[in-house]
Write a protein that binds this DNA or RNA. Structure first.
Lengths: 96, 96
DNA sequence: AATGCTTACGGGTCACGTAATGATT
DNA sequence: AATCATTACGTGACCCGTAAGCATT
């Protein structure tokens, strides 16, 4: 499981539409399908029901969605924390 | 930034030793060096000071470490949530 | 000489875009 | 016909293991 997969998954879960999710992610549609498929395979869970031209999230998908948002939010926080620490260190060096 | 990189980073941060971290991760040492290097490049921050046969975590590294643990913990929780939802759904199918 | 990290390099896997296919309306 | 997702396929990037290089003790 990688952050890329969770990012794609959240996009599809929010759009409930693979093409729109792909546009939002700036990638082609098959790339999204592939990552969702791999994620489902790894977890052993179907995350979306694709039936009748309609994409619906499953119960497992809904459960994953909540946690995925937390993961991605903390990932963003991690990046910011590291970058902010650099700026603080840089400022301290300049000040001495 | 990917979960793999955070996992490698946490291992090095806890061991303060690339070889031992690699052993713990069941990968070769250069793989760890490469991922740390890429992570540092992407964040624009040095995470470890490798000097005098000693690996020390930087201030930015320490900041990233805290957040990385949260990310990885939530990633584990996400997997469990999805798998548990599958089991509940399976049980309901068998009962219902 | 021994230890530890990095660099170099080759191979297998992976992610992605384009194109084609299947399915539904 | 139009729309949407999947499958097929080729290419470039990526991850990793082995081997070599460099520095320190």
């Amino acid at each position: 499981m990688e952050l890329r997969q969770l990012k794609y998954f959240v996009a599809v879960a929010e759009e409930l539409h693979f093409r729109r999710a792909a546009e939002r992610l700036y990638v082609a549609q098959p790339a999204v399908s592939e990552q969702i498929r791999k994620l489902e395979a790894e977890l052993g869970v179907r995350l979306f029901d694709r039936t009748n031209r309609r994409v619906a999230i499953t119960e497992a998908g809904a459960a994953l969605l909540e946690e995925s948002r937390r993961v991605l939010a903390h990932a963003d926080a991690a990046q910011l924390a590291a970058r902010n620490a650099r700026e603080r260190a840089g400022a301290r060096l300049r000040i001495g």
